[in-house]
Design a binder for these strands. Structure first.
Length: 613
DNA sequence: AAAAAAC
């Protein structure tokens, strides 16, 4: 399997191609069943061959006019919007739901038909989705789970055990979710029980549903609550914050599905897009507001949104939301406006990584919370082959070109191999994209200096396979669910190992194998040790030269040490430093290694330094 | 030092 990177990519592509034949054993490797995120299960197989990719990128007039009009924004106003903002007619007045929710919101006299978010799923891109029946759901049974906190509610094993209500159950069926994922099994009962939650779980493990289901359920139950009526101010009951616009859009799209015909209204607000349209959406009523911090602060200062009635607050990618760049804004939203205090609202923090210092910060926002860490089946540990190569700065471009050439030659005919290339800077992204394009590789780029239209267009162009190479800054590192990414290249490694974890998590999704290649050189010395440790725990081959760098590397403190030494997760910082870590100092500490499966799953052997020690 | 996030 690990013969060469090109083979890995080719294997990945051929597994995609052979998906139909996989369905009966559900295994791409003999030893472990594969985990498929719920939103990707049970899609119908493609009915026709995907079209060959066209050799172009998404920039109008790009080739001939590199200088002037390149950034000119010469797009039509509706370009870049079709994937989102379908909320335009989102009245959610199902007719048979009783409609009590809408009458509060002042839009009850306009019964527009709610767009069915389930009808348009298939045949959307050049790939088609694989049939996932036959997945071995018993794979769930040996996922290590760690909970701590007072009186942790018992997990469930099926959606039927949870009373989410008929409307929500119907949408769960429409989403083809068969059984809850591990994070859902634990998180949903915790939130339904009214508890605050800090959850470590990988993206793609069903996090979005894990916080959306209990929020929607809670809003349906509280539908009789009286909300103030301002002439222009709206009073959402739930707020979901995320660090990037694209991620907010993605969460919004998901939440729309889950709340279809429940009468619960979901609105998204983010920067870079005209505010007027978003204001109109808000005026039509909002129960769940999904937003990026900057635009929300704007709306709050204009008094167009009040947080006074917030019952649920969810921070996705919570560790990023609380890092240095974001923390002041988040504190303003959560502590300095009219948001109810902890204990009077329910707060949920989710991320795949949760450094100790951030946990400490986050505890300001929480009240008697439960900490939940869910290990992963598949994805990084099992399904991503990680390679690291020593590449001098000046050799990076030609090295990348070699990779791409070989990949093109090894690719399965007619199947796209999406490659996501991470760089450090926005300028570097533009310059690399330009260079790739000039060398005949259809590439596009996404970063914070592009307009929102350009960003969304680039993402769509990449997802569809039109430009199968996407050069990205960290704006694309977290949370984005892009199926079919076979290869993540860390052209520039990040300085923080957590960022590396998030970046490589863009591949190896949906039970497919993925490849992550990193270019390492003298500029990345501080990453040598954490990277070597991480790869070792993930059972990856660590080159000798990296081990040497790692042992040589001495750096102060544990800044780059992952919290608790754990991989792909973390542990409750409240339990650090207690005299006996096995005593439940805070009560309720509980390591559940899972349903009678003996310890020793992958690298997570209890007793060894890991997330579960 | 860089990236993200409002106008």
């Amino acid at each position: 399997m690990r013969t060469s990177w090109a083979d890995s990519v080719a294997n990945s592509a051929s597994e995609n191609a052979a998906s139909g034949s996989l369905e009966n054993n559900g295994l791409s490797r003999p030893t472990r069943s594969t985990y498929v995120p719920p939103h990707l299960r049970n899609k119908t197989p493609p009915s026709s061959e995907p079209p060959a990719p066209s050799q172009s990128n998404d920039r109008i007039g790009y080739v001939g006019a590199i200088g002037g009009s390149r950034w000119g924004g010469g797009f039509k106003a509706d370009v870049g919007r079709s994937g989102h903002n379908s909320s335009g007619s989102g009245y959610g007045y199902g007719g048979r739901t009783g409609g009590g929710l809408n009458s509060r919101s002042g839009a009850w006299d306009r019964k527009e038909r709610e767009v069915n978010p389930f009808g348009e799923e298939d045949g959307k891109d050049a790939f088609g989705e694989q049939e996932n029946t036959g997945i071995n759901f018993d794979a769930y049974e040996d996922i290590p789970v760690d909970t701590s906190g007072d009186n942790v509610p018992a997990p469930v094993t099926s959606f039927a055990e949870i009373d989410l209500g008929e409307m929500l159950n119907q949408n769960i069926r429409r989403c083809k979710y068969v059984r809850p994922t591990p994070v859902q099994r634990y998180a949903i009962p915790i939130v339904l029980a009214g508890r605050d939650l800090m959850a470590c779980a990988q993206t793609g493990s069903g996090k979005t549903a894990a916080f959306c289901f209990p929020i929607i359920c809670g809003i349906i139950r509280e539908h009789s609550v009286q909300r103030p009526r301002g002439p222009r101010t709206v009073y959402p009951l739930a707020l979901i914050l995320s660090p990037t616009r694209e991620l907010s859009c993605q969460i919004h799209d998901e939440a729309k599905k889950f709340s279809y015909q429940t009468g619960v209204k979901v609105v998204v607000a983010y920067g870079g897009a005209p505010i007027n349209q978003q204001l109109r959406e808000l005026e039509r009523g909002v129960d769940i507001l999904v937003a990026t911090p900057g635009r929300l602060v704007d709306l709050l200062e204009r008094a167009r949104v009040s947080l006074q009635m917030i019952r649920f607050l969810a921070l996705d990618e919570a560790d990023r939301m609380l890092d240095m760049g974001f923390e002041p804004q988040i504190r303003k939203i959560v502590e300095a406006m009219d948001m109810p205090r902890p204990g009077l609202r329910q707060t949920m923090l989710f991320s795949a990584t949760f450094p100790k210092e951030i946990q400490r910060l986050a505890s300001d926002f929480l009240s008697n919370y439960i900490f939940l860490a869910v290990g992963r089946v598949g994805s990084s540990t099992d399904l991503i082959v990680q390679r690291v190569e020593f590449v001098r700065e000046s050799d990076k471009r030609s090295h990348l070109m070699d990779l791409l050439h070989a990949q093109r030659e090894n690719g399965v005919q007619g199947k796209q191999t999406l490659t996501l290339v991470f760089v450090e800077t926005k300028k570097g992204a533009d310059s690399l994209e330009h260079w790739l394009y000039m060398n005949g590789f259809p590439a596009t780029t996404i970063h914070g200096d592009r307009t929102q239209q350009e960003r969304e267009l680039a993402l769509r162009s990449f997802k569809s396979g039109k430009t199968p190479i996407l050069v990205a800054t960290d704006v694309a590192a977290r949370g984005l669910d892009i199926p079919h990414v076979a290869h993540v290249v860390n052209f520039d490694l990040p300085n923080d190992i957590d960022d590396y974890v998030h970046r490589i998590g863009r591949t190896g999704r949906a039970g497919k194998t993925g490849l992550a290649t990193a270019f390492f050189n003298d500029n990345n010395l501080s990453l040598a040790r954490p990277l070597a440790d991480l790869m070792q725990e993930a059972n990856q081959e660590v080159p000798d030269w990296l081990t040497r760098y790692a042992s040589r590397a001495s750096y102060g403190g544990n800044k780059n040490r992952r919290s608790g030494g754990g991989r792909f997760g973390g542990r409750d910082f409240r339990r650090e430093g207690s005299f006996n870590r096995n005593m439940d100092y805070y009560g309720g500490g509980n390591i559940d290694s899972g349903y009678g499966i003996p310890s020793g799953y992958g690298g997570y052997t209890p007793g060894v330094a890991s997330a579960w020690d």
